[in-house]
Structure formats: C-alpha cells, structure tokens
Design a protein around this nucleic acid. Structure first.
Length: 238
DNA sequence: AACCAGGACGTGA
DNA sequence: TCACGTCATGGT
C-alpha cells in the first residue's frame, strides 16, 4: 500500500468527481460552479490568480475568522453587511469597529459568536496594521488571539498563497475513516502528514482542501461518517 | 426540536 | 498535553 501515492490518487479522484472548486469565494465576484453545494456565486473554478488586490486579500482574512465553526452562507451575509460599512482593509475595519461597536456587531451577528469574532477581527486588523513584512510568518499569525492553526493556514494559503496545507474537521473525518490517520491526531501531525505525502503546488493545496470540503459535506456531515462514501471506498486501507 | 456549521480559547486534571 | 465547556446564530 503506497500511502504517498494514495493521497495524490484521492486528490485526482475528487477532482474527477467534483471538478475545480474555485476557492476562495468572493462576494463581489461572479463565478459559476453549479455542481457545488450551497452558494454558486463567488467561486472562480480553475482560476488561481487570487486575491487580485488588497481588498480581496482582506476579504479572505476576515472571512477566515468569520467562518470559524460557521456555515459559509452565514459568513457570506456577514461579509455583505460588512462591505456596506467598511472597506476591506484593517484600518477601515478597526476605525469603524471602535467608533460603532454595536453597528459593527450587528453586521457580523449572522455569522455567530459575535462578541468573540468582533474582537478577533479587530485583533487581526491591528496585527496587519503593525506588520512590517508583506507576508507574515505562521508563528506570528498564531500569536494573534482568535487565530488558531486552521485559520492561520487558511490565511496563509488563500490570502497569501503560501504552501501551507489547511486541515479541518472534514479532513480528519475523511482520512480517519479511510484509515490514514486517527480522528484524535493533533492538527500539526495531520498537516505534516499531508505536506509530507501529497505532491502538489500551492494551487493544488487550495484545490485539495476545497475538494475535501465538498466531498465531506455530502458524505461526512452526519454520523456515522463515511458509510455512504462509495467514491473513496477503494482507498480504504484497513 | 435537537443537531450541525469550512474553530479557538480557558480551565482543570 | 488533553478532554471538556463555552462562545451565538441560522438552517435543517
């Protein structure tokens, strides 16, 4: 059993099944991918040249925080609300959040955890205002309160196009079901597993994560996870 | 009406 | 380290 090869074979299988996912979605970009579950706008299949500007970069960064344990449809509404109140840059957000705390919270309330996320958005904004370099280190991003492993990789991979594999609950469900990892493995061990064994560039890192989400939404959202997953059944290794 | 959603943090063992 | 409670809201 060649695990290293299997991670690439699984990637190919998912890509063949669902095609290009066009992540990260943007609220002001009209892409089309009718096969995707949930929202169909904002995705840009097969185009990896994002973010195209600073505004989109911070849309990814703010969205990465807003989507913590939250459905994307809710995040999309929050971003649309926010877009009417502030420009997607750290100075604008921080200024508005401090002067109009309640309006700011009302805008993002639909994404849940409003009190926490309001603070997290202000924290990351301060971080980028003070940032000296163009691209922050993973360690420095993690020092921001509200940015954990997954959000850090989300920001690095989709906002800064850094080759960091993003792991989420779906990733663990699929690959523990198939027998490649254990459900309770640490974030970093799963991340390292993919980075050591999946051969792909930064665009394929983005695509793999998006494909995992698409696949997991269909077969790994209800327990027992994976029982109806016939697509990846051939890759089970136990 | 319980359960889940593209997690992170604080606490106590 | 690690398991567990908490954080909020909307959809199914």
């Amino acid at each position: 059993m060649n695990i290293k090869n299997n991670l690439n074979l699984i990637y190919n299988k998912l890509l063949e099944t669902y095609s290009y996912q066009g992540w990260w979605p943007f609220i002001d970009y009209e892409g089309i991918n009718p096969t995707k579950t949930g929202a169909i706008n904002g995705y840009h299949p097969k185009d990896y040249d994002f973010p195209k500007n600073e505004k989109q970069k911070f849309e990814v960064i703010f969205g990465s925080i807003l989507t913590q344990n939250t459905a994307w449809s809710s995040v999309e509404m929050a971003l649309k609300n926010l877009n009417k109140l502030v420009n997607f840059n750290p100075e604008s957000l921080l200024k508005f959040a401090n002067k109009n705390e309640e309006d700011f919270k009302d805008a993002i309330r639909c994404a849940g955890f409003v009190n926490q996320k309001a603070n997290y958005l202000k924290n990351i904004s301060k971080f980028y205002i003070d940032l000296q370099d163009e691209i922050p280190s993973r360690k420095d991003i993690l020092s921001v309160k509200g940015i954990g492993n997954e959000t850090a990789d989300s920001i690095l991979l989709f906002a800064h196009k850094q080759k960091e594999f993003k792991v989420d609950a779906y990733t663990k469900r699929i690959f523990s079901y198939l027998g490649y990892i254990n459900e309770k493995d640490s974030y970093m061990s799963v991340k390292n597993f993919f980075e050591d064994n999946f051969e792909g560039d930064v665009n394929q890192y983005q695509e793999y994560h998006a494909l995992i989400v698409e696949h997991a939404k269909r077969y790994y959202s209800k327990t027992p996870y994976g029982v109806n997953d016939k697509i990846l059944n051939e890759f089970k290794i136990f």
